[in-house]
């Protein structure tokens, strides 16, 4: 083994497409897999440059991302594809690294890679996939829409997910409300999904000005909020009161935008 080899660090945008572009570049480089790292550039942590490494800056291109996705789907499996997309959406600086190693194993093992818990990168990808899956499920449960315009009816929901679950959540509500205008606003990543009554869907990053406009739309809606709160309180059984159990199922940090918990 060539111990003298320099580690190559692929620096990329901290988005799903950014990570996938870096995986693509690293993959076609032909450089030894063990000497490749993928590092998303994050606002919150200043770059920690290493002296003994070669840095390669990767440009995000959708085409590269799609090539990776297609290869995984066709050459590994649909399950590995799900693992890839979920883990890539995670908010974890090591996800590029874990995914790269996961795919290297996947291209030789096939679908079985998803079961190989003894491989560290697989274990990590599984954990990330589970975290993202859980959050997108929580988001489907606890998302709350309000009517911000009546003619035509426009519904708006705001949430602050840790991971980039907006695409999965949009897909769910698109199927559910095919003929409705609605917007889901991810306040954490300053991203929003727009859906029209003609079932057109768009997800994009927002400018600060757009985000402000969405915030301004978040006026109070009275009638159904009051009815819902009435129901919410009437349905609880006093003799069974158990707030600890309630918190277990519905952690406090998920309640910020949940109608029945807003005074």
């Amino acid at each position: 083994m060539d111990i003298e080899r320099t580690v190559q660090i692929y620096r990329c945008e901290d988005t799903v497409d950014g990570i996938l572009s870096a995986i693509y570049e690293a993959g076609i480089s032909g450089y030894g897999h063990d000497y490749i790292r993928i590092e998303p550039i994050r606002m919150d942590s200043p770059a920690n440059l290493s002296l003994f490494a070669e840095y390669i800056d990767v440009e995000t291109e959708q085409e590269k991302a799609e090539k990776v996705i297609r290869a995984v789907y066709e050459k590994i499996s649909a399950r590995a594809y799900t693992y890839l997309m979920y883990a890539a959406a995670a908010d974890a600086p090591d996800r590029g690294d874990a995914l790269y190693q996961f795919l290297v194993h996947g291209f030789s093992m096939g679908d079985r890679v998803c079961d190989a818990f003894s491989i560290l990168s697989v274990k990590r990808v599984f954990e990330l996939k589970r975290a993202v899956g859980n959050e997108s499920h929580y988001s489907r449960e606890f998302m709350r829409f309000k009517e911000v315009s009546r003619e035509p009816r426009l519904m708006l929901a705001t949430f602050e997910p840790t991971h980039r679950v907006l695409p999965m959540v949009m897909e769910h509500f698109r199927d559910r409300f095919p003929g409705e205008w609605f917007i889901i606003y991810d306040k954490h990543h300053l991203e929003a999904g727009f859906h029209t009554a003609e079932d057109e869907l768009e997800i994009r990053l927002l400018t600060t000005e757009e985000a402000e406009r969405l915030e301004a739309l978040s006026e109070k809606e009275e009638d159904y909020v009051a009815l819902w709160k009435t129901f919410f309180h009437a349905i609880a059984i006093e003799e069974r009161k158990n707030e600890k159990l309630q918190r277990n199922h519905m952690p406090l940090h998920y309640r910020t935008y949940v109608t029945e918990f807003i005074e």
Binding site: E141, R176, A236, N242, E243, K244, L245, Q246, V258
Partner: peptide, 19 residues
């Protein structure tokens, strides 16, 4: 139409009794 269903079921809230 409006709506779909999910085989796993979806909870939307939890009342003060934890149900």
């Amino acid at each position: 139409e409006i709506g779909n269903t999910s085989a796993s079921g979806i909870c939307h809230s939890f009342s003060a009794d934890g149900r």
